[in-house]
């Protein structure tokens, strides 16, 4: 019986996973969450920025990983627009500009932010290292125009911005190694403050940088998005998603436990 259990058709597991995602999506629930230090630090930093400050939001993820960074971007944009903090959007990913542009437009419309005054999207330039280092000397040297072709010089909020010296924070929404690149080349070379919102896969490697203050703060995956939404008191996609994720996590923990019980019983029998 246990051998049968261990060699169960994987499609049965797939069906179980599908069921525990579909049911909570149809019937959403809300469980209480705590806010951990990394997200709290980021929230506090943005919250304490004086009105008129400028941050860069780097959309360094692609459609393949948008589930986690998108709710983070929404929450932080909402926070910035409500605090009169200006946002410059860029991306180091070639397959991202359309998504980032539309997302910024959507959140800006919802919060009454004006393009060119409260936010702008500069788009994409190839070569992450070249872009990071180039913007440190002259942003207009890398992005002479915004994504829609308007010259940087004609964008009101860019009037007094030359390089990183006038930027208060760079928030990297990352699904790869871009946060480390921003830390190594923008923070070390130009003293630009860096924060991040990262997908689950890279959460663990952010902690050494947080402890050294090379990262001001960061949002760890779905959990980070949920925490930021909680701090804003505006539950959104992160909160809904994380509550649904609870059930899948329980299923996977149960499967691991079951697999191990079957494994140990079988091993004892063999001995």
């Amino acid at each position: 019986m246990f051998e049968k259990l261990m060699n169960i058709d994987r499609r049965i597991i797939f069906v179980l996973v599908a069921v525990v995602v579909i049911i909570p999506t149809l019937i959403p629930i809300r469980l209480p969450t705590r806010v951990a230090e990394p997200t709290q630090k980021l929230y506090d930093y943005i919250d304490e920025l004086p009105p008129g400050s400028t941050i860069i939001m780097a959309f360094d993820y692609g459609p393949s990983s948008l589930a986690e960074p998108e709710p983070m971007a929404k929450a932080v944009l909402q926070h910035c627009f409500n605090k009169d903090v200006r946002v410059i959007g860029i991306t180091l990913y070639a397959n991202m500009p359309t998504l980032a542009d539309k997302l910024m437009q959507k959140i800006a419309t919802e919060n009454g932010a004006v393009y060119g005054e409260d936010y702008t999207f500069l788009g994409y330039r190839p070569g992450a290292l070249q872009v990071i280092l180039g913007m440190g000397t002259n942003i207009a040297g890398v992005f002479e125009t915004d994504y829609h072709g308007t010259a940087i010089a004609e964008i009101p909020m860019m009037e007094n911005i030359t390089n990183y010296d006038q930027i208060d924070l760079l928030l990297d929404l990352a699904a790869g190694s871009s946060t480390e690149a921003w830390i190594i080349y923008a923070n070390t070379r130009y003293n630009l403050k860096i924060a991040a919102g990262v997908t689950g896969v890279i959460i663990a490697q952010m902690y050494p940088y947080l402890q050294t203050n090379q990262l001001v703060g960061f949002m760890p995956g779905y959990l980070g998005a949920t925490e930021y939404e909680k701090l804003l008191n505006a539950p959104g996609d992160g909160t809904i998603g994380l509550n649904t994720a609870s059930f899948v996590h329980l299923l996977i923990i149960g499967l691991v436990a079951l697999g191990n019980i079957a494994f140990f019983i079988q091993r004892r029998r063999e001995e």
Binding site: G200, A245, H249
Partner: peptide, 15 residues
């Protein structure tokens, strides 16, 4: 953490 990340991708598509 990777489990959370992968599950997030699925929840997004099912959503």
């Amino acid at each position: 953490n990777t489990v959370m990340g992968r599950v997030a991708l699925l929840i997004h598509r099912v959503g």
